[in-house]
Amino acid sequence: MTGQYEFKSKWLPYLLVTPQMVIVFLFFFWPAAQAIWQSFFLQDPFGGRLIFVGLGNYSRLFTDPLYAYGDSFVVSVAFAACVTLVSMVLALFLATQANKKLRLGSFYKTMLIWPYAVATMVAGVLWLFMFNPNVGVIAWFLKHKLGVEWQHLLNSGQAFLLITIAASWKQISYNFVFFLAGLQSVPKDLVEAAAIDGAGPAKRFWRIIFPLLSPTTFYLLVMNLVYGFFETFPIVHQVTGGGPGKSTSILVYKVWRDGVINLDLGGSSAQSVILMVMVIGLTILQFRFVERRVNY
């Protein structure tokens, strides 16, 4: 930007950034600092007095069976990994199909893209409605046609399956948009040249198209993990309430529950800090990829 023309004004730029900066400090930095600060204290339940406990809140998370933070961690990782895998594989497959010359091409695309607009919470309601043991169509079918009793509020495997389906269903459209854009930018003559050289469809896909898609795939991998870890709160909150027991209590659900319902400020703050570290890691991963893409 050196040598570029710039306006000269002493006060105008500050006026322009003020609204943004006020909100950034008031609602982002100050609360984040509070979370870090409070994670070192225990709040006295009677007097509201703060007692310094050092890293006590953190070690309690992992040692106190009341928190079972390790379990929550494992569930979150499994959940995020399943959702990422299922929704990315399906979306990539559908994008390769929709990228072919089809008479109904633009109709298909619209139909596959618009569910992006469905709220994560609504995705939870839709699948909850189909799998509700009393009124659900699929639950009824499973019970009366296949002899499977569906009780996701009692069976933790079923609960995990249900939130995974709902979360993946919601994410397919997002991944589809990116994969389709990626596929459309693959040079056609390259693929044709490979075909002339005798490479079959599978070989063309894995040797040429898939490697060219790798920037998109990597970007989506990070975004889907972020989604799986952080943005699926509404589904868990609506569909399972973290249960049965704590079997689907993913990290964001737990931090909400321990803070808002159990009013455990110290424990919840320590969890917030751990989540912050995770987001920072994922963001760095994402931006390192952007740099690489420039060189690509």
Partner: peptide, 24 residues
């Protein structure tokens, strides 16, 4: 400073600062 402050907000979604933001 402004640019980097805005950048850092990327790493602070609501989910990681629930209680203190509520308090503000």
């Amino acid at each position: 400073f402004c640019f980097w402050s805005i950048f850092i907000t990327l790493m602070l979604p609501v989910e990681v600062r629930i209680m203190p933001t509520y308090k503000v």
